[in-house]
Write a protein that binds this DNA or RNA. Structure first.
Lengths: 217, 217
DNA sequence: CCGTTACCTTTACGGCGTTACCGTAACGTC
DNA sequence: GACGTTACGGTAACGCCGTAAAGGTAACGG
């Protein structure tokens, strides 16, 4: 360290305050991820320098780089889940709620593309992969999806052969449609996309209609 | 080089045969990608060693690593496009063809997950990104999608407000649904997926029904 | 036989993630 | 108030990586 490295002269943390550096590392990594909009720019060394610490010190708080990135995403997923819950109106039908959820989901993906990419499009090695998958499937946003899928089944408006497959099946059908559009928009920003809002509307309306009983609107 | 490096003593290519090494590099990279099933394992150095050549020699034939990987995918996409075309039966309706296309698409993604990941889920820098996007949008599989979307519109079976948006809009709706399921399966192999075949069937049937006119089956 | 050129190598730079080891300041204890 | 312990972070280094600059060498046209 020394010359031209640390922007802030970091005092050593007090005895029980090792957690503080951990938080600062997370914040710096998050900031780097958002500002540069590139996962590659978030290197252990860059994060360390931003915090004013040497690279190996990161490893006292995170097992490896993958875990650091996943923790960053986990943090932001709190907001994600909250955002999803907030769009749900009390009086809305399960079908309406599912559509609203889809819109909010895509909105998040487009607002935080790098977070989205890391969580849903990235590849990790073994333990990190398992951790990421547990985060997704145990996260409250996933539970929210399952809950609304169950509500949709309970409402009796779904086609019987679809409803019979259970909430996981139904939920994943919606998730697939929504994730497909979101991830294509994120992965291929240069393609000549037609109006994304229109795509969203037609995609959500389409998959919903297709799963409802024939006689329904 | 020298000790324990080159598995084959490579003779230098003749005057006009520089292209031969290019092909060998592509083949070695492809093999590494398939065998290791990991993009990270395909390093310039590993490819060079597999071919029996020094790393800088790669750069005589490929601008950088991204371009090498994209060329590998481009090669395999020939087979992809051919596979898609082959599933189309002569007498089938546009709707049936679109569903068959979707099944073949997901089958490919699951069979060559790393290729699929590189082409549709990866991030590249600038020129490579532009190249990848051009490959996708100008590739014959994309044209195939557009053609069937147009046929679907021409068949008059689509809901008018959807058909009015044009083949690009319609094609992307199907692409989104199919890519969503495919990429989730590829990205999160550890999740407790219900039967993928059932998901495929219901997803494709669902989105199709949802975009057809109400009175249709 | 010679100059040119296509093909490949040598060497090296700067970056990365990560590990093994070491200083040091803060605390509980006597 | 000195003391051993321990949490906290630093130093130095290893082995990868992608890539650039410059050089050698074999194959050809004349």
């Amino acid at each position: 360290m020394r010359r031209g490295a640390a922007p802030t002269a970091r005092p050593r943390s007090r005895r029980g305050e090792g957690e503080r550096l951990r938080e600062e590392i997370l914040a710096a990594a998050e900031a780097l991820l958002v500002e540069t909009a590139s996962e590659d720019a978030v290197s252990i060394r860059a994060v360390a320098q931003a915090v004013g610490v040497t690279p190996p010190s990161i490893y006292r708080h995170f097992a490896d780089k993958d875990m650091l990135l996943l923790e960053v995403c986990r943090h932001s997923f709190t907001h994600f889940s909250a955002a999803l819950e907030n769009v749900l109106e009390e009086g809305a039908s399960p079908a309406e709620q599912m559509v609203e959820l889809g819109h909010a989901y895509i909105r998040y993906a487009r607002e935080f593309p790098e977070h989205y990419r890391i969580m849903f499009m990235a590849r990790f090695e073994l333990s990190a992969q398992a951790y990421a998958e547990e985060m997704v499937s145990a996260g409250s946003s996933f539970n929210l999806l399952m809950r609304i899928a169950q509500d949709l089944i309970d409402s009796g408006r779904l086609r019987p052969e679809v409803a019979a497959q259970g909430p996981l099946h139904v939920g994943i059908l919606f998730w697939s449609a929504v994730h497909g559009l979101a991830s294509l928009l994120v992965a291929k920003p240069g393609l000549p996309w037609p109006d994304p809002a229109a795509l969203e509307d037609d995609l959500l309306a389409g998959i919903l209609r297709g799963l409802l009983r024939p006689e329904e609107g």
